[in-house]
Lab assay of single mutants.
Amino acid sequence: RRPMNAFMVWAKDERKRLAQQNPDLHNAELSKMLGKSWKALTLAEKRPFVEEAERLRVQHMQDHPNYK
């Protein structure tokens, strides 16, 4: 499986939080909310998630050198 990108790293915990706050929302609505929230973040706010995604990408390359 591919490593998570920055959005997916961020959305993993954010989706849980949103789902707890909005138990009646379907996954499609949660995804739309997550997309809008991600776009609203500044580059500085996204940076930790971008860095974690890069760390995961490098780790994935080391763990699976033949993955394409």
Rank of each mutant, 00 (worst) to 15 (best):
F7T: 03
M8Y: 09
K12F: 14
K46M: 06
E14G: 00
G35P: 01
K39N: 03
Q21F: 10
E29T: 04
W38V: 02
D24L: 08
F7A: 01
S31Y: 15
L30P: 00
E54N: 12
Q20A: 12
K12M: 12
K46D: 00
A6D: 01
D63L: 06
R2N: 14
D24M: 10
A6L: 01
D63S: 13
S37E: 13
L30Q: 04
R1G: 14
W38L: 02
K12C: 08
P65K: 15
P3I: 10
S37K: 15
W38I: 00
A53C: 08
K12Q: 12
Q62K: 10
K12I: 08
D24E: 15
F7L: 00
T42F: 00
K16G: 02
V50F: 11
A40Y: 04
D13Q: 15
A28Q: 14
L25Y: 08
R55F: 03
S37T: 12
V9H: 00
Q21M: 04
Y67I: 09
E45R: 01
M61I: 11
M4P: 06
N66H: 07
D63T: 11
L18M: 09
N66I: 00
R17T: 03
V58W: 10
K32P: 02
K32H: 00
F7I: 03
W10P: 03
R55K: 08
E45T: 01
H64G: 13
L43C: 14
F7G: 01
W38G: 03
K39H: 03
Q21I: 12
V58P: 06
M8V: 09
S37I: 14
R47V: 09
M8S: 13
A19I: 08
N5Q: 00
P48M: 10
L43S: 11
N27P: 15
R17Y: 06
L18N: 00
P48D: 02
M8R: 09
R2M: 05
V58A: 14
L25C: 11
M33W: 01
S37N: 15
K46G: 00
L18H: 05
Q62A: 10
D24A: 11
L43G: 06
S37G: 07
M33I: 13
E54M: 03
E45V: 04
N22L: 10
K12D: 05
Y67A: 15
R57L: 08
F49D: 06
F49T: 04
V58N: 15
Q59K: 09
P48S: 05
L43P: 15
L25T: 08
A44S: 11
P48H: 14
W10K: 04
V50W: 07
R1C: 14
L41Q: 00
A28Y: 06
R57T: 10
D63N: 04
N66S: 12
M61N: 13
S31P: 00
L25V: 10
L56E: 03
R2C: 10
N66L: 10
L34E: 00
N27G: 12
E52I: 03
A44T: 10
S37Y: 08
R1A: 11
N22P: 03
R47H: 11
K36D: 10
A53I: 00
P65C: 10
L56C: 06
T42E: 05
N5W: 03
R55T: 08
P48C: 04
P48F: 05
A44D: 05
L18C: 06
R17L: 05
R15K: 12
